[in-house]
Computed example of a mutant assay.
Amino acid sequence: MSKPQQRVLTGVTTTGIPHLGNYVGAIRPAIAASQKADTESFFFLADYHGIIKCHDPALIHESTRAVAATWLACGLDPARTTFYRQSDIPEILELNWILTCITAKGLMNRAHAYKAAVQDNLDKGQEDQDHQIEMGLYSYPILMTADILMFNAHKVPVGRDQIQHVEMARDIAQRFNHRFAKLFTLPEVQIDEEVETLVGLDGRKMSKSYGNTIPLFDSEKQLQKAVNKIVTNLKEPGEPKSPDESPLFEIYKAFATPAQTAEFTQMLAEGLAWGEAKKMLAANINTELAPKRERYQALMANPGEIEAILQTGAAKARAQARLLLDQVRDAVGIRVLK
C-alpha cells in the first residue's frame, strides 16, 4: 500500500452538542474526505480548547461524550483514522510550552480573538484594556499550533475565521525550523468552497448563538416538530411558490439528490403546501439520519465503548507524537546527560 500523500488534521471543540448545521458543514464532508486513499486523517476532541471559554465542567464532560459519539455514529472509522482526545496526548502540551518560548508576543497581540476582546473593553470604557481577558484566550493560537505541528499536518480544514491561526502556525513553525532544526511541516489552510453552510429555521446561518438550530439526533417526532418551525410565508396550498421564499428549500437540498431537488422545486411551483413540504423535508432528513441516530444512542448508553476507542486512538497518536517531541527536545537542548 502506497504512503498517503496528505495528512489532514481536524479538531472539534467540546463545548456543545452537534446540530444539523455541524453535520452538513463539517462532519459529513470531513468523514467523506477521510475515506480517500491519498489522505491520512487525524481527528481530535479539543477539550483543552473547550475550557478557554466554557467553565462548566459538566458541559465539557457531556460534550466530549456527545461529540465523540456523533462522529463515530456518522461513520468515522477509527481503524482508518487517528481519533483521539487532546487531553490524552501530554506531548501536545509540552510542545505548546516549547513553542510558547519562541513565539513573538507581537504575533499574539494581532490575534483576532484577542483584539476583539480588547476592543470590547475599550468600547465599554474600561481603563484596563485587558480587563477579564485570560491567558487561555490570549495564547489559544499557540496551543492550536501545537495541535497542528505535533503531527506535521499538511492540511487543516477550517472556517474563514480560523485562517489566521493556521497562518500563525506557519510563522511559528518557520521560526523554530530556522532557529533550531527543520522538524516541522508548514501547514496549509484547506477551505472547501463546495462545503455547504446550512441555513437555520429563520434563514440565517444555523448557529446555537441564533437559537435557530435543528438537533442532529432528536427522535423522528421531535425532528418533525423542529422542521415545522422553519419560517415560511402565508401562501396557501395551490399557490405557486419559489425556492427563495423559505429557508426550507436550502435545507431540503442538503439532504436530497439533484433529481429530488428538481422534483421538489417543480412541486413548489405547482402549489405544494408548506405543511406537506415540511413533511417531505423531515422524511428526507430522517432517512439519512435514522441509522446514525440508532448508533449514536447505543454509544451514548455505553460510554465505556467510546472511551476504549479514544484510548486506542491516543496510543496510536502518542506513538507518533513521542518520536517528534524527542527530536524537538533534542533540538532545543533538553537532553540526557552523558
Rank of each mutant, 00 (worst) to 15 (best):
Q260E: 15
L76K: 03
A146C: 08
I148G: 09
V67W: 08
L143I: 04
K208G: 05
S34H: 05
L272V: 04
N302I: 06
A46W: 06
A46V: 13
I133H: 09
G304H: 07
E94W: 02
Q132Y: 10
I92R: 09
R175Q: 13
G75R: 03
K105A: 12
V332L: 02
L324T: 14
F83Y: 14
P247G: 01
L95R: 10
D38K: 09
I27M: 07
F184Y: 13
A30P: 03
V336W: 11
H112F: 10
I102D: 10
G50V: 08
P4N: 02
Q311P: 08
Y210R: 04
A33H: 14
R329H: 09
A282N: 05
D130Y: 14
I230C: 05
R204K: 15
K53A: 07
D88H: 12
F217Q: 02
Q266P: 11
A73F: 01
P187R: 01
D326E: 15
P90F: 02
F217Y: 05
S219G: 11
S34W: 03
G11E: 10
E94S: 02
A273I: 02
D171K: 05
A68P: 11
T197N: 11
V118I: 14
A314M: 08
L337R: 13
G203C: 06
K221F: 06
C101G: 15
A46M: 06
S207M: 06
E263D: 15
F255Y: 02
E62M: 03
D218G: 15
A37N: 14
E196G: 05
Q162Y: 01
R110A: 05
A317M: 07
V8R: 10
A68S: 10
R322T: 15
Q224A: 09
I102W: 07
D147F: 07
M1D: 14
L223F: 11
T261V: 13
I92A: 08
L268N: 04
K292W: 00
L45D: 06
A259G: 03
I17T: 14
L95D: 05
M135S: 11
D56P: 13
A73N: 01
S246P: 03
F184T: 06
K229T: 08
V227Y: 09
G238V: 05
D120Y: 10
E196H: 03
N152K: 15
A290Q: 14
G313L: 05
V156I: 14
F43T: 03
P157S: 02
P240W: 05
T100D: 12
Y138S: 02
F151K: 04
A173L: 01
F249Y: 13
A256N: 01
A146N: 10
I102N: 08
P29E: 00
V67D: 06
Y48D: 12
V156C: 03
S139C: 09
R28P: 00
T70F: 01
M1L: 13
V166N: 02
Q224P: 09
A173G: 04
H49A: 07
G21D: 00
A308P: 14
F83W: 13
P303Y: 01
N152G: 11
